[in-house]
Design a protein around this nucleic acid. Structure first.
Length: 112
DNA sequence: CCTATGACCATAG
DNA sequence: CCTATGGCCATAG
């Protein structure tokens, strides 16, 4: 359901897809070993004020999604997920250092 | 169509 | 470090 399908070139795609689909696309593009913030994804998706919606969209992903949703954290570098233990484990599997549910953003933030 | 909801964010205290 | 507040607006129902 959250699989990304590119049928056309980028600009056209952005115009056709809704915000939610662009969020999926962007999250899928976060490289292993890096993180992005909700606000960053919202900005890249074209709506800088929609950080809240990014969290809401991620919260609705199916449990078996292959999207690396766990690479998205808040602007303070902290995990916002109500179940932070799993997210921390997944980040650590990526080789990211997490202390008390916090990540050093300057070291790990994705810069597209 | 109308409304409530948010895994946010910046700011203020 | 913490809590409180207002803004934001696509999405879900």
């Amino acid at each position: 359901m959250d699989d990304i399908k590119l049928h056309t070139d980028e600009p056209r795609l952005a115009a056709l897809l809704g915000f939610r689909e662009r969020v999926w696309q962007l999250v899928a593009a976060i490289p292993r070993g890096h993180v992005a913030t909700y606000g960053q994804i919202a900005t890249l998706a074209g709506s800088p004020q929609q950080s809240r919606l990014v969290g809401r969209i991620l919260s609705r992903l199916p449990t078996d999604t292959r999207l690396p949703w766990y690479r998205v954290i808040n602007a303070h570098g902290k995990i916002s997920n109500p179940n932070p233990v799993r997210q921390q484990q997944l980040l650590e599997q990526d080789g990211i250092e997490v202390k008390l549910y916090r990540v050093k953003l300057p070291a790990y933030q994705w810069l597209p």
